[in-house]
Design a protein around this nucleic acid. Structure first.
Length: 297
DNA sequence: TTAGGGTTACAG
DNA sequence: CTGTAACCCTAA
């Protein structure tokens, strides 16, 4: 293992994973352009990102075959049903602990390993993975379920029924209070209770429309406040084209949430409210965009 | 600009 | 000396 010239820090690696999870593999310039990641990856070029990602994948796949029994797993999404060679798997997942920060991913999994039915401990392995994913994604406004799924799919190889498991686990974590869900986004629950029922996007909307901010104290760094700041900074540096794209994405997001609300008839009560809020935000974002463009021209 | 091959620098 | 990770070069 070399420790050569400008070694990658764990923060940079986490940022790279985040960028890949958010923008996909290969869009290195997009990842570098991400405002959340550019501060960390400012000293890296797109080629550096590509090379680092290659090295990480090489090392992960190489280290996954440490034990004698090689589970000839392939990265295809159509995961073939792992027949019962549970010995190799159990050795891999035997050391499931609560360490989240800077954990080297274990790049092997089977359906049984992800299932929590036989887990006697209250904290399942999937819980830790979810928490790690959200933490490493480090999105101030929270992470979508799809983003979390992308991250986990990149880091691990979930079984084909992983999406269902993830949805159930996210719901459990949200109801148990370990995660906060706002507008279909999940973020790690803070230790102190804070306002609920209002999404940070709606707060952002108010701040955009009414200029004066109602910040009580600067010392009290409200997390909602930082979320709003992040969104505002993003909008401020946006070109009109980028802002239009953001507004368009908001519209698409609202439509997707509406579709999900219709699909999930069980939790229609909550989902519909979120969907309406998201749609209201999308419409208002478009109006804000128009105002911005009109003011500039 | 990205993917891939090749080269250099460092640790064991 | 060998393996690995960052760096470099070039074709598409």
């Amino acid at each position: 293992m070399g420790a050569p010239k400008q070694r990658w820090t764990s923060e940079e690696e986490a940022a790279l994973r985040t960028g890949v999870a958010k923008h996909g593999v290969g869009n290195w310039r997009t990842i570098l352009n991400d405002p959340e990641l550019s501060s960390i990856l400012c000293s890296r070029s797109n080629v550096d990102l590509k090379d680092k990602w290659r090295n990480m994948n090489v090392t992960v796949t190489a280290s996954s075959s440490r034990d004698k029994a090689r589970t000839a797993v392939k990265k295809t999404r159509a995961a073939p049903k792992n027949n019962d060679h549970s010995a190799a798997i159990s050795t891999v997942i035997s050391d499931a602990h609560d360490e989240i920060v800077d954990a080297k991913p274990i790049a092997s999994a089977s359906s049984e390993a992800w299932n929590t039915s036989n887990s006697k401990k209250s904290h399942s392995r999937l819980d830790n993975i979810i928490m790690e994913a959200i933490k490493n994604l480090n999105e101030p406004t929270g992470s979508h379920r799809t983003t979390i799924a992308s991250y986990i799919e990149e880091q691990y190889w979930p079984p084909s029924d992983f999406d269902h498991l993830l949805s159930a686990k996210l719901k459990d974590l949200a109801t148990s209070g370990k995660l906060i869900k706002v507008n279909r986004k999940y973020r790690i629950a803070p230790s102190s209770p804070r306002l609920e029922g209002r999404s940070p996007k709606m707060l952002l909307l108010e701040d955009v429309q009414k200029e004066p901010l109602k910040v009580g104290s600067d010392a009290n760094k409200s997390l909602t406040r930082s979320q709003v700041d992040a969104e505002l900074a993003r909008m401020a540096t946006m070109t009109p084209e980028a802002a239009a794209a953001a507004a368009a994405r908001a519209v698409v997001e609202a439509e997707a949430i509406m579709a999900e609300a219709e699909a999930a008839a069980r939790e229609a009560e909550v989902a519909e409210a979120e969907a309406q809020a998201a749609q209201a935000f999308a419409e208002a974002a478009l109006l804000t965009l128009k105002n911005r463009n009109a003011a500039k021209v």
